[in-house]
């Protein structure tokens, strides 16, 4: 029980810092919106290709576009979460607190999950409007997929952000290490989003949900348990 209080203390600290400064969140939301716009410029909404249901090209490929936007924005946000701790030696302070260091890992993962979820709450509707995706009636299922995929992303992302925090070239190293591990999450999340938006005729959705659950169980466990190794010294 006391461990959970440590976890919540970290979550509280991180969300409070963010609420007071709003620095990272505003930049993140702005960046995500920009990425969605750039896709429209790069791919073009006027290409005379339509999906099987008669939707536009952008709406048809929107699951992929949304997840790339989330991944690119998320990796920036995750990189910042330990950058913040390095300023003024805050991480040293965290290490000095008594108790299990895995609580720090769990707290950081939950805090990052909250940030990423807040970002998605903005990004997904913006994408829906820009690409004219019909997602309003499917929000509960979409929310479930978003949560499962973001949990895995937050777990591995927090872990790697902590590993690369005080490294040269961390801006390159974090995505370089993180993206290969995120392949199953991206595949499953894009497929599941697609099936929710376009109808699940073959009943494939449950496979992808199961994959996301397996990924989350494996990596939330490993990343939390191994977190003691990450911030030692």
């Amino acid at each position: 029980m006391t461990e959970w209080r440590r976890v919540w203390a970290i979550v509280w600290k991180d969300t409070l810092t963010e609420r007071r400064t709003k620095a990272a969140f505003n930049a993140m939301a702005f960046f995500a919106g920009l990425v969605l716009l750039i896709f429209a410029f790069a791919i073009g909404p006027d290409i005379p290709v339509t999906g099987p249901a008669g939707q536009g090209l952008m709406a048809y490929i929107s699951p992929g576009l949304l997840w790339i936007a989330i991944l690119l924005t998320g990796v920036l946000a995750l990189g910042r979460s330990f950058q913040m701790e390095l300023e003024n030696g805050a991480l040293e302070g965290l290490r000095l607190y008594p108790g299990d260091r895995r609580a720090i890992g769990a707290g950081k993962i939950i805090a990052n999950l909250i940030f990423l979820a807040a970002m998605e709450v903005l990004v997904v509707p913006i994408g829906g409007v820009l690409y004219s995706i019909d997602l309003w009636s499917k929000l509960p299922q979409l929310g479930g997929v978003l949560f499962l995929a973001t949990l895995g992303f937050a777990a591995v992302g927090t872990f790697y952000a902590a590993l690369t925090a005080n490294m040269r070239a961390r801006e390159v190293m974090l995505p370089l290490l993180l993206f290969p591990v995120m392949v199953p999450v991206v595949l499953a999340a894009v497929k599941a989003t697609f099936l929710i938006l376009n109808g699940d005729l073959m009943g494939e959705l449950s496979t992808w949900i199961r994959l996301l659950v397996v990924f989350d169980v494996v990596f939330v466990t490993v990343c939390t348990l191994a977190f003691g190794f990450v911030i030692e010294e």
């Binding site: 872990f159 790697y160 290490l177 290969p180 591990v181 392949v183 990343c223 191994a226 190794f229």
Partner: peptide
């Protein structure tokens, strides 16, 4: 070592 472990498990 941590990166290799996570990468291999994946």
């Amino acid at each position: 070592a941590l990166v290799a472990t996570i990468g291999f498990l994946n």
